[in-house]
């Protein structure tokens, strides 16, 4: 699975309150959530982000609450993939469960800059910065997570499994 997109750069310890503030959690429609994504961190983000854009961040991205609204809002806003030095545990699971791929790479997180165009190969974990003409390797996505992504998240994955069982 290959992706290409323009980069948005964020710092370390971006928490889920920063991704989607709790004041918007009185509903869970991804399109509504997307309107407020990263609002307190960077107010114009939700207006400027385009479908296919890629987010690159520092360490511990997605720390804080377990709200699945956070990856949902990013995905609905158009973000196709997130690269970071490390991810908080619950955010990591949530993202794959809703079909949003994440890659961990210290070098990529440090070298890639805002506005760069990058290519990502999800099956090999290779990241290519087209602007800088630099290649990075991330930790490969575990096979089980790749399967989740291919199926489009945990729900379609489970549905497929139950159908198989029934046959």
């Amino acid at each position: 699975m290959k992706l290409e997109g323009r980069v948005w750069k964020f710092g370390s310890d971006i928490d889920t309150d920063a991704i989607i503030p709790a004041r918007y959690l009185n509903q869970s429609d991804p399109k509504e959530l997307a309107k407020h994504v990263m609002e307190d961190e960077r107010p114009s983000f939700s207006k400027d982000v385009r479908r296919g854009d890629i987010l690159v961040a520092g360490k511990n991205f997605g720390c804080g609450s377990s709200r699945e609204h956070a990856p949902l809002a990013l995905k609905a806003a158009g973000i196709s993939c997130i690269i970071a030095k490390s991810f908080a545990r619950i955010f990591f699971r949530n993202a794959f469960n809703i079909g949003l791929p994440l890659l961990e790479s210290q070098e990529a997180s440090e070298a890639i800059e805002e506005g760069d165009r990058i290519q990502v190969d999800l099956s090999t974990g290779e990241i290519y910065d087209l602007t800088k003409k630099k290649r990075f390797l991330s930790k490969p996505i575990p096979p089980f997570m790749q399967e989740l992504l291919r199926d489009g998240g945990l729900i379609p994955h489970l549905r497929k499994k139950t159908i198989k069982h029934k046959q």
Partner: peptide, 8 residues
């Protein structure tokens, strides 16, 4: 965990 996993 997240909601999807909890639902499962």
């Amino acid at each position: 965990v997240g909601s999807t996993e909890l639902g499962a």
